[in-house]
Design a protein around this nucleic acid. Structure first.
Lengths: 272, 272
DNA sequence: TCAATAGTGTCTCTCAGACAATATCCT
DNA sequence: AGGATATTGTCTGAGAGACACTATTGA
């Protein structure tokens, strides 16, 4: 206790009496942690869209180690020293799934900190959101598998599906897993947060359309929006949709392939 | 190296071979930290409004210990084990300033993680935003002072002022301190983030009006909005303003005091 | 009665949404 | 030619913003 008292006195001296330089020098010499510190992880909610299948997709990995071994989870992992969390997120996504994201299309979502959200102990996670044109994935060392799951909204339920996998179902209002196949940690909640955020912002920040890659047609954009609204794309009027979003688009070229009148091709305007 | 190799083998065994129960038991016995972990703090951006002075205010504390001793800073501090960050934020705000916040009017803002944002080393901060009717403040043990600073927007500059203190100036586009009086850490950036967030959302999420306490008049609400727009409140048309926001209000009573026709009193409707 | 304050009403212009018409391609 | 797909154009009703008017109070 005496030792502790003298440590406290010393601490107080450096914190309040000494110069800032002296304080920092002293501080760095201390081995005892001033406070108990949590681990910090990042999680990435990454969306893409497949034109042929008309499917909105979300990237998941299968965990190959405890906890939640063999469960599906968002890509992510521990933040390293000298890394901003956005960088960790980009790095981990690449390591686990071989998908390269840039700072352009990454957006911070929310930080989840329930003290019991990780069975290993105290782990806080900073979640991110991004959109990318569909890319091949390849599970890295840290993951047993990596897969684009189709994501469909049916009323208040999100259904994540893949032919070879059991469906994962999430209740939108509560953010809870519904079926037997459960996502790791609180990742269902994170996905719901991302989904709602996108649906709310899409009409004034159409970054979602990056799932279509650089270029897209009005109808393709309608299809993507329809996925977030949980409706058929034909319920979104072509003319009105175009009027609402044309300010964010730049026309780049004319024709395309396929049946019917060729569509014009657009890009997203650069950041406002 | 041999010791380390065998540790790695053991780790791999528990992570990938053993049962989850066995893994967790093993995990909790480990003394060596699996990863280097950052400290995590919270910061609170708290706004209020003083009717007599017609001033929007923000709560700052004067730091009484290094680093940034004697600088003004947002209330906040280290997150403790078994605490969600929102709880830490409420606790620290109370400890440092004697102001009680509830979960009702607290909203997560952003997590700041630049690795060099704290001279002590690796510290990540989760920032929060809240509104409260004006309350007396009293500096706690951790702070040398606690004060409501008036906040005025003049073009692209935020000016934080108090009669007895030097003005603090922040450039809105860059989030940088302008004058000689500088805020601690990256707190200028956090305040700018909060300010912009409020200004963007005010017309469809008028939670800002909680700075007026429970009840308020249309004109009082206009005055608060004008502060965020950096204009005189008379530039906001009474009639149009009311039309735009009436859906979020409930009329509670009629008359008030003062010169002129008595105003009606409103409350915010409960959460949608 | 006048100035100050606040609430109510009106006019116009714009925009969102429903729907109709036209254009271009494939078979 | 006919069906499919996409673009362009029109009509209407609701809402935003400018502005004028009325109501209530204190001096």
């Amino acid at each position: 206790m005496d030792a502790n008292n003298s440590y406290q006195a010393e601490k107080k001296y450096y914190e309040t009496q000494a110069s800032e330089e002296a304080f920092l020098e002293w501080y760095k010499k201390q081995s005892r942690p001033t406070y108990d510190t949590p681990s910090v992880t990042v999680d990435m909610v990454l969306f893409c869209y497949n034109r042929e299948q008309d499917e909105l997709k979300i990237l998941l990995i299968k965990r190959n180690s405890h906890p939640f071994k063999d469960s599906w989870a968002l890509p992510g992992g521990f933040v390293r020293r000298d890394e901003a969390t956005a960088d960790s997120c980009i790095r981990e996504t690449f390591e686990e799934t071989n998908v390269r994201i840039t700072h352009q299309n990454i957006e911070q979502l929310h930080t989840f900190s329930r003290p019991d959200r990780d069975p290993r102990g105290w782990v806080i996670t900073v979640s991110y959101l991004a959109f990318i044109g569909e890319e091949p994935v390849k599970a890295g060392d840290d993951a047993k598998d990596a897969l684009w799951f189709s994501l469909n909204r049916s009323g208040d339920t999100l259904v994540l599906s893949d032919n070879a996998q059991k469906d994962i179902m999430i209740d939108l209002p509560s953010g809870k897993n519904l079926g037997t196949e459960k996502l790791a940690f609180d990742h269902a909640e994170i996905i719901v947060k991302a989904f709602n955020r996108i649906a709310n912002k899409m009409y004034h920040e159409p970054q979602v359309l990056r799932v279509l890659g650089e270029e897209f047609t009005i109808t393709e954009a309608r299809k993507v929006y329809a996925k977030f609204l949980g409706i058929d794309y034909r319920e979104i009027d072509h003319s009105n949709f175009k009027k609402a979003l044309l300010d964010y688009f730049v026309e780049v070229s004319e024709r395309a392939t396929g049946v019917g009148r060729p569509s014009k091709i657009y890009r997203l305007k650069n950041e406002d």
